[in-house]
């Protein structure tokens, strides 16, 4: 699999590696997918990178590759920001080859990472018709998570037809941020757009929301989909090739 902009892959790895340290990458003719739960089984991440999004891609037979995201992250940190990246696995090999090429083709780096033997449990992700779908700037969402984490470890997300309200409370007191739905949309990427079938109010652990925001560099927008008694879906699209979707169980007030 070859990417002209290796930085896309680095952003994917940085977006995943705090939530899951290692994961099984499923490679087929259609592209690369990954599905993994965090260690406490409260969040799940689903990655899709379709073959047509790569500059070149070939997969002669389906492979499940156990990869340490922590190690992969370290190796990718050596990549130049404009480098192209090629990842290859030879048949019956126990390692993955990561090749980086500088833009002006004068520097070639090659790394080999040992593969891990992981038992990959595959869960079915049901198509859900959410009560509410919010689109907003990913930087704005990251900022809100950071600000709300000052006040508490849970964030209540309430949606109304006017907008969406994030609130947190704790020992210090409480705080809330309300975003009004954008009316005159000049730049889609900066708009707050809410499609609401019915209002929802759900509480989530801000620690996880902040971890999800590590994937924000992938896309200027983030999608938040909510329904009562349903895991939150937090989606960052990967331009022209797929997405990273995080799912988080709501805090259920015992």
């Amino acid at each position: 699999a070859r990417l002209l902009h290796g930085s896309i892959f680095a952003k994917v790895i940085e977006g995943l590696r705090e939530l899951v340290n290692e994961a099984t990458w499923e490679c087929s003719g259609n592209g690369i997918t990954l599905q993994a739960m965090d260690s406490s089984h409260v969040a799940l991440v689903s990655l899709v990178m379709r073959s047509e999004g790569f500059e070149s891609y070939r997969c002669d037979r389906n492979m499940s590759l156990g990869i340490s995201l922590v190690s992969m992250s370290k190796v990718l940190k050596t990549m130049g920001k404009d480098d192209s990246l090629t990842i290859r696995v030879n048949d019956d090999s126990d390692s993955i080859i990561i090749a980086m090429e500088s833009q002006n083709q004068d520097k070639f780096a090659d790394y080999e990472l040992r593969l891990m033997d992981l038992d990959s449990e595959h869960l079915g992700i049901p198509d859900t018709d959410y009560s509410c779908a919010i689109k907003m700037p990913s930087s704005e969402f990251s900022r809100i998570c950071r600000d709300m984490s000052i006040m508490g470890d849970s964030v209540l997300i309430c949606t109304t037809k006017e907008g969406v309200k994030f609130s947190a409370k704790g020992d210090l007191g409480q705080g809330s941020i309300r975003l009004v739905q954008t009316t005159n949309i000049e730049k889609e990427e900066e708009a707050v757009i809410i499609e609401m079938k019915e209002a929802v109010a759900l509480t989530f652990a801000v620690r996880y929301l902040s971890m999800f925001c590590k994937a924000a560099p992938l896309s200027p927008q983030v999608g938040l989909s909510l329904s009562e008694d349903t895991p939150l879906m937090c989606e960052f699209k990967i331009a022209e090739m797929g997405h990273v979707r995080f799912y988080l169980a709501p805090k259920i007030e015992d």
Binding site: L123, G124, I125
Partner: peptide, 14 residues
Amino acid sequence: NIQQQFLLNFFKQY
């Protein structure tokens, strides 16, 4: 805990 079970049930049921 409840949340873990909740998440697993949501995806498992499918």
